[in-house]
């Protein structure tokens, strides 16, 4: 029973962590190249989810849904993800052009403020165009629950985890195997000198935002599948927490962001069963409501003992906020 219980929570944590990881990647990529945090990223995730909603509804009306469907659900899903990633990439590029490029020489905190403000504008624009009420994300694939020895797993959970890991691997390939990836890594290494040898700073910056936003869009659609209620503020707390994951992973470390994203998801989800097991073992009475308190105390402790995150480099004057 306890094993089942832990396994169940572990699977839930994997799904939850994959959202954090995908979003944290966007933060981390922008960070490694431009040395600034894109605080609008949480809201780009929201925009991505809404674009996904629009695209999937469009595709469903085009190809029919339910019994009259021309295309199977998973094809529509793949198309939705690809088209939305493409469209959201442009949102990222616009955000970079408007909010960050004029501020590249400015103190980094100023860019953080523009990021926050762009986030507010995106939320407000959403309310203006779609109204304040929540929208339902269409269930593109039939949900099937498997019972594996008392552990309940749905096909969607498996798919979400696999797709996120696939996207992370694809990103890894892009960064390590392509010329653009090399340019990005070079820029991350030294963004003052590298442009002098002919790497176009503006293109790389725009590309970074585009890739980060595309990943956020994918996260948004997967999120919509798992938790099918979209609201204009869904990106706010998610964005801040993914920001925590990005830094926890270590500044600008792509792998660190992935691992820290899964770790944060794991900490947040596993706190609840941990409390329950503690309660049972020591007959205490702590409520699961202490989840945030305990989860972020753990984060705080990790940072106290590893002040540069899991995979980050030490502080230097150049990297100051």
């Amino acid at each position: 029973m306890t094993v089942n219980f832990l396994m169940q929570n572990l699977i839930n944590a994997l799904q939850w962590g994959s959202f954090y990881a995908l979003i944290a990647l966007g933060y981390s990529m922008v960070y490694s190249i431009l040395m600034l945090f894109n605080f609008a990223h949480g809201d780009i995730f929201m925009v991505g989810a809404y674009i996904g909603l629009g695209v999937s509804l469009g595709l469903l009306s085009l190809f029919g849904s339910g019994a009259a469907a021309v295309l199977p659900g998973w094809v529509v899903l793949v198309l939705t993800i690809l088209i939305s990633m493409f469209l959201t990439a442009f949102v990222g590029i616009i955000v970079e052009r408007v909010g960050y490029r004029p501020l590249r020489e400015a103190p980094r905190a100023s860019a953080a403020i523009t990021g926050l403000m762009i986030g507010i504008i995106l939320e407000t624009a959403n309310i203006l165009f779609l109204g304040g009420s929540r929208l339902k994300f269409p269930q593109l694939i039939e949900s099937v629950t498997y019972n594996i020895g008392g552990v309940y797993v749905t096909n969607k959970k498996i798919m979400i985890v696999l797709v996120s890991i696939g996207l992370m691997l694809a990103l890894h390939q892009l960064i390590t195997r392509t010329k653009w990836g090399m340019a990005m890594r070079a820029m991350a290494y030294d963004y003052v000198v590298v442009p002098l040898v002919g790497v176009p700073m503006n293109t790389i910056a725009a590309m970074t935002f585009a890739i980060g936003s595309a990943l956020a869009a994918a996260a948004g659609i997967l999120f919509g599948l798992a938790y099918p209620v979209l609201d204009p503020y869904m990106g706010v707390s998610f964005g801040w927490k993914a920001f925590v994951a990005a830094i926890l992973g270590g500044r600008g470390s792509i792998m660190g962001a992935c691992i820290a994203g899964f770790m944060l998801g794991f900490i947040e989800i596993m706190t609840v069963p941990a409390i329950q097991i503690m309660n049972r073992l020591f007959s205490l009475n702590i409520g699961s409501n202490f989840r945030d308190l305990i989860a972020y105390s753990i984060v705080l402790l990790i940072l106290i003992f590893r002040p540069h995150g899991l995979f980050g480099q030490a502080y230097s004057a150049k990297l100051r906020l």
Partner: peptide
Amino acid sequence: RGDYLAIISLAFLFIVKS
């Protein structure tokens, strides 16, 4: 310093609110 302190303080905010 810097970003790490930023999230330590952010975690602190979450903790206080919770």
